[in-house]
Design a protein around this nucleic acid. Structure first.
Length: 106
DNA sequence: ATTATGACCCGAT
DNA sequence: AATCGGGCCATAA
């Protein structure tokens, strides 16, 4: 509880199943601070465990990609999500279908 | 302890 | 509907 938010964000990111995406605000909310969406993004940017933290599954609340520090940026991110099975529409993801549901996902 | 930066979000125009 | 600006949180130096 006294630990930093980052560990929480990392943990939540690892919980995101393949083929699904979560918004920064969503993660921030799960972390305990719905307004710390920014801090969440920074946590992803740092990504201490890129091999275990699918930061590419974290997208903006609009369903559009915000940024990506690995590969070619949003381009690689978009590609990865597309490979996961996420369909990009108009350069955005269908949050109505692909947004991660932590409660339903047990 | 303060300052500066950052992969964001929301409201207003 | 699209665009612009401001605000909020946390981390690092």
């Amino acid at each position: 509880m006294n630990e930093t938010f980052f560990p929480k964000v990392y943990k939540l990111s690892k919980k995101i199943p393949p083929g699904k995406v979560a918004t920064y605000s969503q993660i921030a909310k799960l972390a305990g601070n719905p307004r710390a969406a920014r801090a969440v993004g920074i946590a992803m940017k740092r990504n201490p465990d890129i091999k275990n933290i699918p930061c590419h599954r974290i997208i903006a609340s609009d369903g559009s990609l915000c940024g990506y520090s690995a590969g070619k940026g949003v381009a690689a991110k978009q590609k990865l999500l597309n490979k996961e099975g996420v369909a990009f529409v108009n350069g955005k993801v269908d949050l109505t279908v692909y947004q991660w549901h932590p409660k339903e996902g047990r």
